[in-house]
Structures are given as structure tokens and as C-alpha cells.
Design a binder for these strands. Sequence first.
DNA 1: ATCATTCATCGTAAATTTACGATAGGTAGT
DNA 2: ACTACCTATCGTAAATTTACGATGAATGAT
Lengths: 111, 111
Amino acid sequence: MIWQYHIHKNIVKRSLEPIAYNQDTEALARFAKALGHPTRIAILKHLENQSCCFTGDLVEVFPLAQSTVSQHLKELKNVGLIQGELKPPKIKYCINKDNWNKAKALFQEFF
Amino acid sequence: MIWQYHIHKNIVKRSLEPIAYNQDTEALARFAKALGHPTRIAILKHLENQSCCFTGDLVEVFPLAQSTVSQHLKELKNVGLIQGELKPPKIKYCINKDNWNKAKALFQEFF
DNA sequence: ATCATTCATCGTAAATTTACGATAGGTAGT
DNA sequence: ACTACCTATCGTAAATTTACGATGAATGAT
């Protein structure tokens, strides 16, 4: 049964170079990915109601560590759906209308 | 410097019980997550054009292993965005209109 | 019954995500 | 300068995702 050893040695060669999809497809997937966690959806819904809020507010709303909330905010910021404004000693987060509308348009076009 | 040992022994207690968000938030996040990969977006766009297609067609379109394409299809099927119909020896995949419209409505309401 | 075709599933490796506590940084007030 | 406050970042563990090749299951044809 020596062959078993060889069979289980299937080293996978991963295609390093990512597939180049068209711009809209990539953008839509990026937005969708950012929306792909209930906490982030909830954060955005909260921001839509309040228009703006501070990190601390969210930490009180969600039963999550402050660092975890911060991480979710970072992701939303990275795709551009929100933006932070320094209001010392706090940071005020708002929806980034431009990119919000971009995302909206992409989803509308898609569906 | 014995304390270093203890400092680095920060075992994380993960909150096992997931947060209960409201139904729509969960559903929207689930759909968004499924759309959160460019390949899956591309597959759905393809299905919108063709109305339907076979797994094999997609394997030719994308530079991905057959098993990988199949896995993406499975995820789309799991959230209900597509459905498969046996057309031996192939399987014909189409968009699931009901759930597609459900997703559409959730995104529209959200934006 | 056997074979070819088509696709799903298994097993696995690497990468990424998600959560936490601990720590660092930046600003306002004392 | 020191302190208090708020938030970002670091380091890490566990879970999940994404990719592959190999295998298995189901059907139609020979």
C-alpha cells in the first residue's frame, strides 16, 4: 500500500495570477463582500438612521469588543462606503455618499 | 522577564453564541456574501444573458478547475440565487427568480 | 455489463476573515 | 509634563474561504 503515501501528497498549484474580470464585476464584488457580514450591514443601517455616529456609540450597540467594531469600520472605510472625520477626542463616521451611490448604481444595474 | 510568557498566552474567548440580528439584516448579509466574489458575480451575469447554462460551459469560460466552478455554483445554490435542473448527462443551471427578486428587494430597500 | 461523459464531493493547502485582549497613538484638559 | 479619554493597530487563535487534483456517482450509449 505504498501508493497511499503518494496519493496523499497532492501538492496543489494555485493559479497565482488572479483572473482579470471587468471593472464593474470587480467593483460590485468588492462592495458585496464588504456588505457580506451582518454586523457591517447593521452598522450601515445605523448610520443611515443617525446620518453619523462615533465608534463608541457602536460599541454600546453591539455586543462586540471595541477592536472588533473598529475592524469592521476599517473594512467599510476601505471600500469607501463610510468616511471618518476627526472630532477630538472622537471620530465621527458618516456614509460616503459618492461611493454609496456608486454601489447603489452597480447593484441596480446588476439586478 | 517571566511575564512575557504570560502576556503572550492570551487565549481568546470567542463569543460562541452569534449575535441575533434582525431577519432582513441576516438575509441581506447572506446574499451579499454570496455576491462577494467576482467569479460568482460573473457567473450570475452569464446566467442573466444566457438565461441558463451548464457547468461545463462555465468551466470553458473561466480559467478555473471544474471543481472550483462547481463549488461556486454550490454556494450560489445554497443561498438560493440559482437552481439546477437535471438534463442528463448535464445539469442546467438557471437563476431562481423568486429568490433573485427577494435579494433585489432587500438591496433596493437597503440603498 | 462496460465505457465515456458530466458533474459533485472529498481531502487538503494556503489565504483570508473574524474575534479577542493588549498596546499604542493622538488630543484636550489639568 | 501628566492624565484621561477615545480609537486604531498589533498579535494571535479559530473558523471560513478558495483553490486544486483525485475520486465517486449518475446517466446514456455501445
